[in-house]
Structure formats: C-alpha cells, structure tokens
Nucleic acid binder design. Structure first.
Lengths: 237, 237
DNA sequence: CCCCACGTGTGACATTCGTCACAGACACGA
DNA sequence: TCGTGTCTGTGACGAATGTCACACGTGGGG
C-alpha cells in the first residue's frame, strides 16, 4: 500500500527526484479520501487548505458564471494534483472543483506540506526546483506566443527542438516531436499556418524538410525570423 | 552598511515579507563585488553558480547569434536580481550578462542560497510563495494573450481590474489603472485596438465608460467575450 | 486488398488587426 | 491665455492569418 503511494508520488512531478526516505515521509502525511460523484473539493474564492492528489475517478474544474451557468474549464484524470498553485502562494482558489465520478483522492494539508519541506530540506530543494522549471517553461511559452508573426513562433519552436536535440547549428538535423496540429495549438495558431510557415522556410532555403525531419540550412535566418515582436526577459522580469 | 543591504533586499521581492533576523542572515552571505565596465558576469550555457544583485551601475543581458552579432536583449538597472531563474532550477543560463557601466553587485552563491532556506524555514516559505505568485501571474499572462481576439483580451483585463476593485458584478464601477498604451503592451496588441474594443463594448451596452472609469452593464456578456480561443488550466497544467 | 483514419500540403476568401493619419480633450506651465 | 505634451477616439487601408475546402500519402485493420 505504502509502496503504491510512492509509485503515485513519483508520477506527480511535484516531488520529482526525491529518494525513498523522503517519499515515505510525504506518504505518511497523506490522508486518503473516497468521494462519491458530485462531491465538491473546494470552491472558487476559498483559501487554500491543502492539495488533492487524484488517484482514481475524475475531477471537473469549473467556474460559475454571473448568469449562473457552471462552465467546466477542464476535466482532470488520474494521476494528477488538483490545484497546486494555491498551495504555494497561499492565495484563494481561482476556480471550483468537484468529482464527476466516484473518486479516490489523497489529501495533503498546507500545514503538513510546510512541515515536510522544513523537516526535509531535500523536499524544499525539489519543490523550488520544480517551481523554477515550470516558471522557465511558462516564460518560454509567453516568449513564443507574443511574437507577432506565426513564422517567428514556428522558428522559435524549431530552434528549441534543435537545441534539445543538440543540433543547434547550420547543417544540424532533428525530428519535430509533434504533429503540426499539436504545434499549432502550442503556438496559439492553426495547423495550416504552421504548414505554411514551414513551406516558406523551405522555399527560402532556411531549412530542408522531409516529413518531420528538419535540417537547418541557415541558422542566422532562422534566428532573425524570431526577432520581430516584443523582446522578453529570458530570466523573467 | 548592513542596514543599507537590508534596504536593498527589501526592494527585491525575492525575499519579500521576511523579518529582520532573516534578512540579516541573508545579508551575511552576500559577497560584494565591484566590476569595471565590460566585465562578463556569466555566459549563456554556463551552469548557474549563484545570483547577482545589481546595486549600482548597469548590466546588459545579451545573446551571441550564430553569425557573431551580440544582441542585447535588455538592460538591467539597479536594484535588480540578475538571473534568478537558474538559481531555482539549477539549469544553465539562457543568456549572457556583462556590465555596461562600472557597477557594484552583491553575489549570493547557490550553496549559500540553499543553506539559507534550510537553516531558516521562513526563507523557504518566502521563496516558495514568491515563485508561486510569479507562476500564477504568468499563467494569467498566457491566458490573456492566447485569446485570439483582442476584444476578449480586453474583456479579461477588465474583469481582472473589476475583481481587484471588488466590483465584479453588474453595475460595478472601477478605474482602469493603466493608459491604453500600457494596456496594449500588456495584452500584446496596440493602443488603437484597445480603444476600439472598448468602443465596441460601449456600443453594445456591455460597459459604460467615461475616461478611465468603467461601469459594468452586462457582466455575462463580458465573460462570454473571453471564451473564444483556448481555455487554459487556471491552476496551470 | 481495400478502406479509412490521420497527418500533411495548398488554394481561395473573408476577417481581423496593425499601421498611419488626424482630431479632440485635458492638464500643466510659461 | 496660449502653447505643449499626453491620452484618447476613429477612419482608411493593406497585410497577416483563420476558415473552409480539397488532395495526396501512409499505415493499420477488416
């Protein structure tokens, strides 16, 4: 049982990279809760009292609009933490949550969370590192979608993929690890616009492309394509 | 001297909300460094060894593009931390930094930073809270600018301002705490488009507006205006 | 072996938005 | 009182892009 809880924790990211003793310490603080369908976990505006881990079942995140409709913003499936952010900054929940299926959850109270990282410094390390990574990722996302032209956003994505593959140079070759539909969603544009941007880069001999495999022909041109629109602080202002 | 360092720390945000003993502990770890103009603090790709606090002078953040040009991304002026993010996630610097004026800086090593929050749990609290707030802010930014239509972004901004003012209801009235130029920049659009979006809301009796004072006439309509484009996780996926 | 789903490429068209241009309102100081 | 600068409001126009539509290639399952 305890073992399976550790397995669950490992799939969360929040406590990523922790060794077994630390995970055991976390597991010891978790309170299992079974909820029938339709149980409200918390409501928008409440102060955060802790975080839920969805182990089985389904949770809907929703808001009640001013004319009384309940708009479901997203549906969470296992294994996920529900509402991590308020845990960190101690602010109110920005939306409400309820089970839409009979569900098993684990609850970690705010107090226990704080005790955990106070008593186990490596947990503080892991949490801070995790938050740092997410912040960095979001900065990157903002950087991408604030570029005015779609071609710039696509160029930025290509540069990222090339860098990840260690092929960030003229002649470097890598795979695009996405469908164009996915890429379109990430770049806040459409599949077609992504395809057209790629076509344009091909036409201007900036890249060579066969299916998902891309070869960089003119790295400078690719970098230049990203330099329209607002320049953002790479460290986050 | 120690007192003035505390003053500087208070202006940083990173250690926001800490009491004097904690700030003294931080101050005790800081290493003052004077650098002449043109000194390189760190270079893109290096692993982070600590964070710099710019006390006086000027620091340029730049990247060297593939054709050898050095593109200055932004210029930091006192009092600012330089490259906080790598401190948290321990990854490499995403850009290089050098002084462009003779400058006084304070250096806090990664090791000392970790020791600080291990020995002073309230520092861990403050750092985690600070990161959480920034994450929440960035999520909001992404949410705003990923809305396709400008009118939706303006509506979202209005809802935020109304909520901050505690006037989030039909008939609620509040001031827009920005010029339209500033608002345009925040929403990744232009002054003119902001003005036109406001004009359109007025025309459709969604809001009443006299200068910067806005009264909400139809909250539902305002909320509906924000529901185009991608719906994002308010807790950040 | 065929069919169908999926990913991709591209053409045509309407719409949105940014750019440029100009005007009125207001505050501030000479 | 008269500039002068800032903020706001709008009109016109062209470029970028989303939408719709269609075509091709590929891979897996019946």
């Amino acid at each position: 049982m305890d073992l399976s809880i550790q397995k669950i924790l490992r799939r969360l990211g929040l406590f990523q990279g922790l060794d077994e003793p630390a995970l055991r310490a976390v597991a010891a603080r978790l309170i299992p809760r079974h909820m029938s369908a339709g149980t409200i976990l918390f409501q928008r505006g409440q102060l955060c009292r802790g975080v839920y881990i969805l182990v089985s079942g389904e949770v809907e995140i929703y808001r009640t609009t001013s004319d009384g409709r309940e708009q479901v913003i997203l549906t969470e499936v296992p294994v996920k933490t529900i509402a991590e952010l308020p845990l960190f900054d101690g602010a109110a929940y920005p939306a409400s949550a309820r089970t839409s299926q009979p569900s098993n959850l684990l609850f970690l109270s705010l107090d226990d969370f704080q005790r955990l990282y106070r008593e186990h410094p490596e947990i503080a390390d892991a949490v801070i590192q995790n938050l740092g990574r997410r912040l960095r990722h979001l900065v990157r996302v903002v950087e991408r979608i604030s570029l005015r032209e779609v071609s710039g956003r696509v160029a930025l994505a290509l540069l990222d993929f090339a860098e990840q593959a260690g092929e960030l140079r003229d002649g470097g070759s890598f795979q695009i690890p996405r469908t164009q539909t996915q890429l379109g969603a990430e770049l806040a544009t459409t599949r077609e616009s992504v395809a057209r941007a790629l076509a344009s880069f091909r036409e201007h001999h900036v890249i060579d492309q066969a299916g998902r495999r891309v070869t960089i022909l003119d790295l400078s041109a690719l970098e230049d394509a990203t330099s329209n629109g607002g320049n953002l602080n790479p460290f986050h202002r």
